[in-house]
């Protein structure tokens, strides 16, 4: 499972890559179970490089939601491709996770200072 952890303005973002299917979802599960052990107010996943996610991937995220529910953690999914987003929506998971257009939005949503900085950088770049 290809992934990287970036820290933007003091906020940790887990970036996933490629296809999340039966082959890699067990790895993702291991990663997420470990993450769930250190409670956080929010978890941000950057899915912009994820081209496909199958049911086992979805179920892995649902399990992560279950594990972090007690702590009332918010789970933010950023930058989903339309197809990947449809897969989430087909089983109504938009009600469990917060979808954001991009990582900057997600960071802004959780109130990180970096969010607005990144956003302004984005607009400056345009």
């Amino acid at each position: 499972m290809k992934h990287s952890i970036e820290t933007l303005g003091g906020i940790e973002v887990l970036k996933l890559h490629g296809e999340i299917d039966l082959k890699v979802s067990p790895d993702l599960r291991g990663l997420l179970t470990k993450k769930a052990q250190t409670p956080q107010d929010y978890f941000i996943f950057d899915l912009q490089d994820v081209s496909y996610i199958d049911s086992s991937g979805l179920a892995t995220f649902v399990e992560f939601f279950q594990l972090t529910r007690e702590k009332n953690s918010n789970i933010l999914m950023a930058g989903l491709k339309p197809r990947v987003r449809s897969i989430f929506e087909l089983v109504r998971l938009e009600e469990l996770f917060i979808f954001c257009d991009c990582v900057a939005d997600a960071i802004e949503k959780v109130g990180g200072a970096a969010g607005s900085v990144l956003n302004s950088m984005d607009s400056a770049g345009d």
């Binding site: 039966l22 979802s25 049911s55």
Partner: peptide
């Protein structure tokens, strides 16, 4: 597949 039974359970519910 070699998916964990707990995950399979969630998949069944989603399906």
């Amino acid at each position: 597949s070699k998916v964990d039974p707990a995950i399979v359970d969630l998949i069944v519910k989603m399906k």
